[in-house]
């Protein structure tokens, strides 16, 4: 039953042959009618197998969930017998809550000490922001900035299959994660609400960051504050999987920044956001990559690596 040719056909259909092997095998199939018929038959078989596996997995998941629930339930009585041990802790918790409630608060509340909201990484990209000039009228820009760059589509090229697109989303998420690990917002002269947003961002409450920065009025008289707001929004949108909005925020930063320290990271993050829909933003991605490769760019090496990966898809 597991004949060599049988195995080879299955490996071919499962994408487990090397590129060379696969193209040689395709050639063989085209030339051999019996082989072609065998491949067609296995295609049909695989369709049925995958249907069975789907049903099989559905049943297994239901069974496993029941088992896990049962396991949790059997652990509960042990907890119940010891629950009186928890009373002193509960009392302590109430006491702490009362202390916190009646503790005199000022604007710089000690609840979230400044040291805690400082990212772990040293200042890298935002250092020069402190010396950037004020920019009056930025508030208008946040509300009215049209998302021109994300409206275009390029249908002239072949569409990327969803499997590769998901690979790209995974890649973009990983690269963005690296960005976040080096992000440093400390040392900026920002207002109280942005400080609050930063604190939420540090706690990875991205939805709350978006809500706070989108709904509440913030004094955006200073360029620095506008950039911080857009940066927090951009990264939060990205983490929430709202890539279009993320791209828009990073685009706003790139449009403002004259210094490489500001515009280059923004462009890179914009590129990562666009990767979420390669078919839609292909033209934009290609053009930005070209720009990043043609002229000196902080993210030049990363852009080169990304371009190679995109070319190989």
């Amino acid at each position: 039953m597991h004949t060599e040719i049988d195995k080879k056909i299955r490996s071919f259909l499962k994408g487990r042959l090397s590129e060379e092997e696969a193209s040689a095998f395709k050639k063989e199939i085209a030339e051999d009618d019996t082989l072609r018929k065998a491949v067609d038959m296995q295609r049909k078989e695989i369709a049925v197998f995958e249907y069975w596996l789907k049903e099989d997995l559905k049943n297994k998941l239901a069974k496993w969930d029941k088992e896990d629930a049962k396991k949790e339930a059997t652990q509960e009585p042990m907890y119940q017998t010891n629950r009186f041990v928890l009373w002193p802790f509960l009392g302590l918790l109430i006491l702490l809550a009362l202390v916190w409630y009646f503790y005199p608060k000022n604007e710089k509340s000690p609840v979230v000490p400044q040291e805690k909201i400082k990212p772990k990484a040293p200042i890298k990209k935002s250092k020069e922001l402190e010396s950037t000039p004020n920019n009056q009228g930025s508030k208008e820009r946040i509300i009215t900035e049209p998302p021109q760059a994300i409206k275009n589509t390029d249908k002239s090229k072949k569409l990327m299959p969803s499997a590769q697109q998901e690979e790209l989303v995974a890649l973009a998420s990983d690269l963005h994660h690296m960005e976040l690990s080096t992000l440093d917002l400390s040392g900026r002269n920002i207002d109280q609400k942005l400080t609050q947003a930063e604190s939420l961002f540090e706690k990875q409450l991205y939805k709350d960051v978006i809500e706070l920065l989108q709904k509440q009025a913030i004094d955006f008289q200073q360029k620095e504050q506008y950039l911080t707001q857009q940066e927090l929004l951009g990264h939060s949108f990205f983490m929430e999987g709202k890539y279009d909005e993320a791209a828009k925020a990073f685009q706003n930063i790139a449009a403002q920044g004259h210094e490489a320290d500001i515009s280059h990271p923004a462009e890179w993050n914009m590129l990562l956001s666009w990767l979420s829909d390669y078919n839609k933003y292909r033209k934009k991605i290609d053009s930005l990559l070209k720009k990043m490769l043609d002229a000196p760019h902080v993210y030049g090496p990363q852009a080169k690596e990304l371009k190679n990966k995109l070319d190989s898809l």
């Binding site: 994408g15 690979e167 790209l168 995974a170 973009a172």
Partner: peptide, 27 residues
């Protein structure tokens, strides 16, 4: 499961990021 079995994960990101990408799309 199907994508991994059919070698559609190329290793560009971590496997968890690949999984998360699929789930975000589904959601």
């Amino acid at each position: 499961d199907q994508k991994v079995r059919f070698n559609q994960y190329q290793g560009y990101g971590t496997l968890n990021a690949f999984f998360t990408g699929i789930s975000k799309n589904r959601w």
